[in-house]
Design a protein around this nucleic acid. Sequence first.
DNA 1: CTATGGACCTGAATGC
DNA 2: TGCATTCAGGTCCATA
Length: 271
Amino acid sequence: MPELPEVEVTRRSFAHRILGARIVASEPGLPLRWPLGRAADELVGQTVRAVDRRGKYLLLMLDEGVLLVHLGMSGSLAFRPDLPPPGKHDHFDLVTTQGTLRLHDPRRFGAVVWSPALDADPARKLLSTLGMEPLGEQFDPAAFYAGLRRRRAPIKQVLLAGDVVVGVGNIYASEALFTAGIRPTTRADRLSRARSDRLHAAVRQVLARAVERGGSTLRDFSSAVGESGHFQLEAAVYGRGGQPCVVCATPLRQIRQGQRSTFFCPVCQRA
DNA sequence: CTATGGACCTGAATGC
DNA sequence: TGCATTCAGGTCCATA
């Protein structure tokens, strides 16, 4: 469910409500990607000063240190004054004076990690390899092009890898490449400057639009306060293998790249 | 250093 | 109905 737009929409939905709240308890359930360990106790008594985002990580800035929350493949957050007892797939509760933040994550690829500071481990290690923020100013065409020049892998996989630009997941990678008219299998370092610029604009546009729409998703994404089922994903290509291209009606193709599905139009995306 | 494949985990959809 | 297989929005790690 969560690519950058969904994470950002989630952030906006509860950031202002949890601001200034004091942490009363921290209750981990089944282990997630990394064990929270003793850090759970460090949280109690601290106040939430800000909720930021870096890539697909949510950053709860506390008096001392930062709590990193990642939604993995299947995670979602709820924040409410009162929540029912945790269910089978609820694996973390952060109880505060203003409500409880709950991580629901069936597959448990998500993570909750405490770090004493952003530039100290483990936050430093997790965040230091991340590429540019696609919606920030540092994401400019020249820097993007420079990043692509150093990579020989297929452009789709370079987008997904997140070390040039963060936040582009499997859905939006196919969508952005379609918008830019670029074949997903093209080597990143073979893109001309002009085509790189088009992709740069497409990545920005596709992600920004999804954020505006309140986070699109295949099924039923909902924000942390339960505003549900916002929008169906208006995918031009993702999940539409064999169906006609919205532009030229040619049947769309589905291929495998690095064990992930990729969708494209063989006519609109020639090279 | 880059690139690739396997690993983590559960549930839903599909095929026999 | 049951059972095996495939697939799913992410990313870390070991290996070439």
